[in-house]
Structures are given as structure tokens and as C-alpha cells.
Nucleic acid binder design. Structure first.
Lengths: 265, 265
DNA sequence: CAGTGGTCTAGACCACGCT
DNA sequence: GCGTGGTCTAGACCACTGC
């Protein structure tokens, strides 16, 4: 799987199989650097569940031995995985699979922060949980066949007793089998931590589309605001390993005392 | 400035001056790795204008010689600067100072994208340019003394003839001396490219706060929409080298046919 | 062809966390 | 004290660019 490095130094040998990406109509060999291939192999192990979220992965030296490359090459592979938040390095201890069960990553996907003061965990009120056939639009964005089952969730999140987020979620039914309102209500903590522990699905990345919308009567009632009030609409698609879409959600954020924070670089 | 490495190998010698960050009440020596110090020195050269945006900086080998470290150490420093978009590496050519005069970086700070289709450059209409004493709030966020002069700009940006962004900007008067409405109108292309070429101020980073707001009568008129229409409010503070705030702007985005796109990772 | 960044290796030592 | 990740060096070769 990994190229043979007989001689002492660097080798870009156009050798056998270079852990190719997909099939593709050939004629474009697309060699990738060794460390990229190693990165791919490590990612596969993460995806397959060989090392689970929170667990320690083998040391750089062990991996170097396993893959028959130098430690520096493994290091560069892990550097990138660390930059992508797939793993977390801890000096003196080792490298761990990233998990949503940690204080640090609690707010990683929640960009709404209070205008003044400290971030608090929102209080959760689940309004509805049901299984339905995926509407065309939902199916398309989750890359499912239209008509497949999805879990639909509707909830309100409050800060200090003030209803602030009205949110609807769609999750592939196949993955989230035993998800009930009870399960959601009894669970304290971030939803992604629940998804990770109970359904083996770890979110690694998301794309959001933001718009400003006016509250209609239903929405106004749910959030206890006036009809027409401007709300921040946040549509999110979340991805797990292999860039597989596994969650679609649409949130309506009340931004009277909060704002959505973003860093551009 | 750089530690002496007499012997052959690594050296963390607790030696003389380790390019300290700011003054600080000492008693916390805070040593930083060599490559971080190199990174700091390179950043200083960028800041001082020794190498200007678009220009080629010395090769890794040259810098290694100048700073008396190995190429690998310089390499790691430049790796980080490249990740922060301060420089751009081009294999076979060299490393260049990042510039806003490039197709690639045209949309780096504009996250509003059309719901369907290709990104186009907005058309610009400058409504107002004047010099005023900085309001307290503006002064605070630009880290200026209250009462200092700022340049105030108001403009509308349209896509395909549709007014979409109403924006107000505040810029430190000391830096943006000769900025007039004429200058802004005759300049085609991104405003940050103008700032870079004409005022020697290169934006490297920004923080944005997003909210949803209802259009009042003035705003509605400027954008040709109804009063009460929900708009996406985007407040941005931009920073140049040394994390110095040099721009405050507040944009109101019409999100009927566009959305603000964001990646979470 | 020379020069640049990009990859890879091998070996050394440092800082940290635990036992 | 040992094992981990973190830093640093030296030297080699590959891939791209432009003369």
C-alpha cells in the first residue's frame, strides 16, 4: 500500500499504487505526497472506528513504523489532521481523536454570542420529534433519495429564560434510528455529543448560509416576538468523515441581545 | 537578535533576548520557539514595508543565512505566515507578499454570494465622503482618541443593477489623508486594493458581527425596499499588521437573492 | 540549466505529563 | 525516568519556473 523506500533518501518513485483518490477516467495519475497518503490512511482508521472519539491514537513513532515512513512524514500528516480538528495533540500525552464531549468544543458550531458578557449554555425545549419521508429539498441537500425516511426535530433554545433560537432539524433516518423526544430531553449537553456517543456520527465540518427574514405569525408566537420582527436565518449542512452530509438544520436567531460572530482571514 | 547556535544540534539556550512580545511586567520570560521568533522578524519586515505587497521576498535559503538558522526553521515560519495569508508561496518562483490586487483575493472579505450562479463584482455608488470627529463608539472600536478625525464614507453596492448593500465606513483620518469621493469613484476594483496601493495599508484580518434588523424609512429609501424589510447587518472591524484596527464598517445586506456564506470547521 | 519551493529522511535535544 | 509530542538541524532529491 505504501511505496517501498529502499534507498536512503527521498522517493517519489512512480511506484505501484499511490493510494489514489477515487477511480476517475485515468490518464491523470495525480500522485500525492507520501504524507497525504498517510493522512488518508489515518482518516480511514478514524472513519472505520478503529480509534473512537476521545481515544488515544498510536504515537507518531508507532505509526511511522506501521506505515514504514519516517516520523517526520507521519508528523506532517497529523499536523494537517490537527489543523482540521479531526485530532487533538497534547504534548507529553499523545494524539487523541477529536470529540464533542469537551469544554473547548462546546461552542465550536454555535456562533451566536451575547452582546455583553459570558457565553452560557442554552436551555433546550424540544417541541416535536417525528419520522417523515424526506421532502425533495431536504433529500437533495442531504444527498438522499427522495422519499427516504428522515427524523424531523423542532426545538426552541433560550438564554436566561429568553427564547432566542427556533430550530428545525432533518437527520437521515437510517443513521439516527432510536432518536426520540425522550432521549433528546433527558440528554444534557451539546446535541453533537449525543450524536457522537449514541449514533456513532461525529460532525467534523459544516456549511452555513445566512439570511435576514421577517417573522411570520407562527414563528412570532413560538419565540414570543412581534410579527415582522427581523430574524437571522441560519441554514446549516453538517458533514461527517468522508464529507458525507448527515444533518440539515434551519435556525431562526433572535439578535436583539446576541450576534453571530465571524472571523475573516 | 537571534540566539547563537554554536554547536551542531538543537538549541533552546536560555540566551539573551528572545524577541519578546511587548513589555509586560517581566517575571514571565515566555520563551518562544525559534521559528516563532523568525516569523516575528519576517512580520516586522512586512510591516515596515521592506517588502511591499506583491513583491518577492528573499528565498528560504537567503533568510536562513540572514537569520543564522536552518532552512527548515525558516520554512516553518513561512508556513504559518502563508496559512495566515500574509504571504503566498509559488513553487519554482518564490514567496510573495500577499496583495489585494489579485483575482484570488477579490472575494476574500465579501461573504455575500448570489443564491444561484456566479459571483459578479458589485457596482459601486458613493453617496458621501466627509471628514468628521470620531463619535465615541467609533473611536472606541478603532482604538482612537475620541475626537480625532475619521473619514466617513457611505455607499451603495448593486448586483446586476439591484441595490443590495448599503454601507457606512469609518477610517482613521491620519492614515487615509487624501481620500476623496473622486478618488473612490475613479477607482475600479476592490476598495482594499485601493487602500493598499494609495495609503500603504494592507488589511490582513477582520472580525464581523452579524444581526438581523428591520429597515427604517431612510434605509428603505436608499435600497428601494419596503420599510420593515429584514436586512442582514454586518459590522466589521479590519486589522492591518500588528493587529492594529484601521477600519470600521457597517453594511446592511439585502438577502432576497443572496446569502452570507460561512464555513465552520 | 540554475534557482525556487515541496517532500522526505535521520538524528538530536527540549518540554511536558505521568508514574 | 520514560514516553509523548515539539523543535531544530543537515542533507538529499523532486517538481516547477524561467532563462
Amino acid at each position: 500500500m505504501i511505496p517501498n523506500n529502499t534507498s536512503s533518501s527521498a522517493n517519489y518513485d512512480a511506484d505501484s499504487s499511490s493510494v489514489g483518490e477515487s477511480v476517475a477516467p485515468s490518464l491523470a495519475p495525480t500522485f500525492s505526497p507520501l504524507y497525504q497518503q498517510i493522512k488518508g490512511l489515518i482518516t480511514q482508521s478514524l472513519q472505520s472506528g478503529e480509534w473512537k472519539p476521545g481515544e488515544l491514537i498510536p504515537s507518531e513513532m508507532e505509526l511511522a513504523t506501521r506505515f514504514k515512513v519516517s516520523q517526520g512524514t507521519v508528523r506532517k500528516a497529523i499536523d494537517e489532521l490537527s489543523a482540521e480538528n479531526l485530532v487533538v495533540r497534547r504534548q507529553g500525552k499523545g494524539t487523541f481523536v477529536a470529540t464533542h464531549h469537551e469544554a473547548k468544543s462546546q461552542f465550536r458550531f454555535l456562533r451566536l454570542v451575547p452582546d455583553n458578557g459570558e457565553r452560557n449554555h442554552p436551555e433546550n425545549r424540544i417541541l416535536e420529534v417525528k419520522r417523515v419521508r424526506a421532502p425533495a429539498e431536504v433529500a437533495r441537500r442531504l444527498e438522499m433519495k427522495s422519499g427516504e425516511t428522515v427524523v424531523f426535530i423542532k426545538r426552541v433554545q433560550s438564554f436566561g429564560g429568553v427564547p432566542t433560537i427556533l430550530e428545525e432539524l432533518w437527520l437521515p433516518g437510517v443513521i439516527f434510528k432510536g432518536l426520540t423526544m425522550e432521549r433528546l430531553n433527558e440528554y444534557k449537553g451539546p446535541m453533537y455529543a449525543l450524536f457522537e456517543s449514541e449514533f456513532g456520527t461525529h460532525m467534523i465540518r459544516a456549511e452555513e448560509e445566512l439570511r435576514a427574514v421577517n417573522a411570520d405569525q407562527d414563528i412570532a408566537q413560538s419565540l414570543g416576538i412581534e410579527v415582522g420582527q427581523a430574524l437571522l436565518s441560519v441554514e446549516r449542512i453538517s458533514f461527517t468523515y468522508g464529507d458525507k452530509a448527515v444533518e440539515l438544520r434551519r435556525g431562526l436567531y433572535l439578535t436583539n441581545a446576541h450576534h453571530y460572530r465571524n472571523e475573516l482571514s
